[in-house]
Design a protein around this nucleic acid. Structure first.
Lengths: 140, 140
DNA sequence: CGGCATCCGAAACGATACTG
DNA sequence: CAGTATCGTTTCGGATGCCG
């Protein structure tokens, strides 16, 4: 039996969720919210190395709860960034992989991760500096 | 009188907040959390066009409350990504601009914004598709 | 103008228990 | 294994009022 999945066949490209091409902040928000999510980025990075099963993801992404992993992959699937494939075995087996769109996004996400890695020392330093100058702040 | 600001002179680069160079997810988290914040990205994008005053930022970033703008710029300042300059005038005048580190990050953030703009139609389509197939979901 | 302090409802998240 | 459902807690974020 062939696996069940939810891939979109080939959407004809139209439909403007905003209607205003001249307004940059318009649809950006939604997409950025997804990227903005801490877990989404980590899932994407993990899947960049290849397909993963649910538990593999959970083990790889240290600290994520099962609930959050479920929500995260659902949202990414809904956005068409990852593909969820269910194999009708017992027990159930599901794997997740990036779609073409998701793989494309990976480059940017990786660039961000690399930048973070490259600058974390400088940023940590800046934070300590700030905390010394402003001994009592509520930030974070 | 010269303006008061909180710029860090030139921190000698050392200090590893994690201690494990081989663990990619380590310091990444903190930095990504900042980028992950919806408002941070919008502030950075806005400041990429040049220095802005508090009210200018608030007006430019449609929808942000004064509270969140304050918190956002404080955090970005703490991370050394933006520079806050207070001019001792009456009434007070404050401007914000990107530091070198922040300006560097701008390229990546803009790339993300561009990607979002370029793919928002496809993503919106994917979402509608998903919502048709899964009529009742709690996602988002 | 550029904030800060406080209150309060909403949303996010984690832990736990249960299911096909 | 791969979830769903529920609950309690924490955090977020907007509204409001006051201040230098």
């Amino acid at each position: 039996m062939s696996p069940t999945h939810t891939q979109v066949t080939t959407p004809p490209a139209d439909l403007d969720p905003c209607g205003r091409e001249d307004h940059p902040d318009c649809g950006i928000r939604d997409v950025l919210d997804r990227i903005g999510d801490k877990w989404s980025v980590l899932v994407i990075v993990e899947l960049a190395s290849g397909p993963r099963r649910f538990r593999e993801l959970q083990r790889a992404i240290d600290g994520i709860s099962q609930r959050m992993l479920t929500l995260t992959v659902r949202r990414l699937e809904r956005d068409g960034l990852i593909l969820r494939t269910v194999y009708p075995t017992v027990p159930a087996q599901v794997d997740y992989r990036l779609t073409d769109t998701g793989a494309d996004l990976t480059h940017l996400v990786k660039a961000l991760a690399d930048w973070s890695l490259a600058h974390r020392t400088v940023i940590a330093k800046a934070r300590h500096q700030y905390d010394r100058i402003h001994p009592d702040h509520d930030i974070r």
